[in-house]
């Protein structure tokens, strides 16, 4: 067991967990934050995407010892965070959500991109989302959603 200290959605957290427990399990099973999904568990689907120090990563491939002192953000932060909230609204407006299983991961990857650039090109959006699979939408509406969120945020800025 290790004492794990990290920031989760802007709140300090201290937990006792096995050093090899995965971040995905810490979030879902220990903290009951089930917005982050488990798909493949091997880094190939992106359903488990969270932000770690502002970069999108697969939480299924992160162990507790790697998360020590890190800043983690999950989809639950959409309740407070303007960028996540705007992305969530845009996904709904453009019809980018069908079953919704990929959506939390898509939105976290999209936020990582918008933190880098508020005017992403289509190619930059595709590149940023290439690790997130969606079996329902065909991606077109998802790309539109990210464009719409970028536009909305730029207008507000």
């Amino acid at each position: 067991m290790i004492e794990l200290k990290f920031t989760l959605n802007n709140q300090p957290q201290t937990l006792q967990v096995p050093a090899n427990m995965r971040l995905l399990e810490i979030l879902r099973d220990q903290l009951h934050l089930t917005g982050t999904k488990e798909g493949c568990s091997v880094g190939e689907c992106g359903a488990c995407t969270v932000l770690m120090n502002k970069k999108a990563v697969c939480s299924c491939l992160m162990l507790a010892c790697q998360v020590q002192n890190a800043e983690i953000e999950t989809i639950e932060y959409a309740a407070e965070d303007e960028m996540l909230k705007t992305l969530q609204d845009s996904f709904l407006k453009t019809g980018a959500v069908q079953c919704g299983f990929c959506t939390p991961g898509m939105i976290m990857s999209a936020k990582a991109l918008l933190l880098q650039t508020l005017q992403p090109s289509n190619d930059q959006i595709k590149k940023a989302l290439e690790g997130n699979l969606c079996r329902c939408t065909g991606y077109v509406q998802i790309i539109e959603a990210v464009q719409l969120a970028a536009k909305t945020l730029a207008e507000r800025a």
């Binding site: 880094g43 992106g46 770690m52 970069k55 999108a56 990563v57 990582a112 940023a128 290439e130 690790g131």
Partner: peptide, 9 residues
């Protein structure tokens, strides 16, 4: 290489 979700770490 992989995807940005992997290449970042």
């Amino acid at each position: 290489f992989a995807s940005p979700l992997i290449a970042g770490f």
